[in-house]
Design a protein around this nucleic acid. Structure first.
Lengths: 221, 221
DNA sequence: GTCTATAGCAGGATAGAC
DNA sequence: GTCTATCCTGCTATAGAC
């Protein structure tokens, strides 16, 4: 073995940190899952904290870039003409899986935990990934909006979309009980459909409201 | 001291578990914050796990009932005639503070963590509190809706509202950076206003839509 | 009910052989 | 690069005095 081991440690760590959180995971657990010796974490990364950070720099960041690529590619390809389509593509990027479904889940779980109780990792991720992505998203969306839309409206609407996406992942154990149906593919399809429709109307309504003479009437009426 | 100590332990535990999660908190930390001896946790609760459970049974459940009371009282008082008003009251119950703002924050943080990685506590909380509350909410909302609204639409719309509420609390450290303004009272007002408006249009649109084409999977055009 | 003292052990980290 | 062996801190938990 050489550097494959390092990769195996990172993958095991990502999964365990995502599922249980930093403190609930032991290095013994990680190396056992990665089928290697405990001390290799220290050889490759120096400490548990540094391994955790590296999960974000190596795994999380690159997955995020993949997702953003996929999103902007889909935009390029479909050349949406209404806000509705943009929101649909955004939601689908995060909930339909071109990417492996489980990896996408870990990805969202990890960031959810960082938001809840930020560490150095969030600092890195926010400046390197999230902030630039939001800037691009704002630029993308702006032309679709009536000029009266304020930056606040855009950012908060995006916030609402991501809130729903993250909450689906976070509450995936309870959701089936609330909906009284299993969390299968069909249910997931329903959830995607719901977020898209709900957010589209929400965003359109919001922006129409703070402008009387809207020309974005496509979504409603 | 007598039973006041027990209460102090519960309060300290609630705050720390909410902020850091079960594994990151030590009993030493809890008892130090509660200004009492470490062994009293074992005297009163038996173990760390049992203390955690008791936080939900004693603190979380009663706070939830308070909130639900406050919500249904406000409904009684204002006698809303449109869906918009109901949603506004729901959002305001969870984000404006009649209740101490910090306690409300702990309340939401605690349940967010339980959703993420459920324990025995969620089982209790779901059956005793959440499920009955959702049932009452559905009954309340149903008359305001167009008869074509399905149970799924209602549950998912409520889900979207709570998603946004919880996400505001969870990402409160990052939100100011995204909005480029401090997380002060004025910003909080803006957030409440946003969730209310966004959700109101989202929910109305959603229900109008499926009254139009009678099944949701058909999508939009 | 509250305290002291301590058992018992898990988990992060390091030294050093191969 | 990978492994064994071990250190040591800090944790949950208990026994027992007051």
């Amino acid at each position: 073995m050489e550097d494959i081991t390092k990769e195996r440690i990172l993958s095991a760590a990502e999964e365990l940190f995502a599922e249980k959180g930093y403190d609930a995971v032991t290095i013994r657990e990680i190396t056992s899952k990665a089928r290697c010796n405990l001390s290799l974490v220290y050889y490759y990364f120096g400490s548990k904290k540094k391994l955790y950070l590296e999960v974000f720099k190596e795994k999380w960041a690159s997955r995020a870039r993949e997702l953003h690529e996929a999103f902007f590619d889909a935009i390029e390809e479909t050349k949406p003409t209404t806000l509705d389509e943009v929101i649909r593509i955004l939601t689908a990027t995060y909930l339909e899986r071109k990417m492996n479904a489980q990896n996408l889940q870990f990805h969202l779980q990890l960031i959810a935990r960082e938001l809840q109780k930020p560490t150095e990792a969030l600092d890195f991720v926010f400046h390197e990934i999230i902030k630039p992505f939001f800037a691009r998203l704002e630029d993308l969306i702006h032309p679709f909006l009536n000029p009266s839309a304020r930056k606040d409206n855009i950012v908060l609407s995006l916030f609402s979309v991501f809130a729903q996406i993250v909450h689906i992942i976070n509450s995936r154990h309870v959701l089936p009980k609330l909906l009284e149906r299993p969390f299968d593919a069909k249910t997931k399809e329903l959830l995607i459909q719901h977020i898209t429709t709900f957010s589209m109307y929400g965003m359109n309504g919001l922006i129409m409201q703070n402008s009387r003479d809207s020309f974005i009437t496509e979504g409603l009426k």
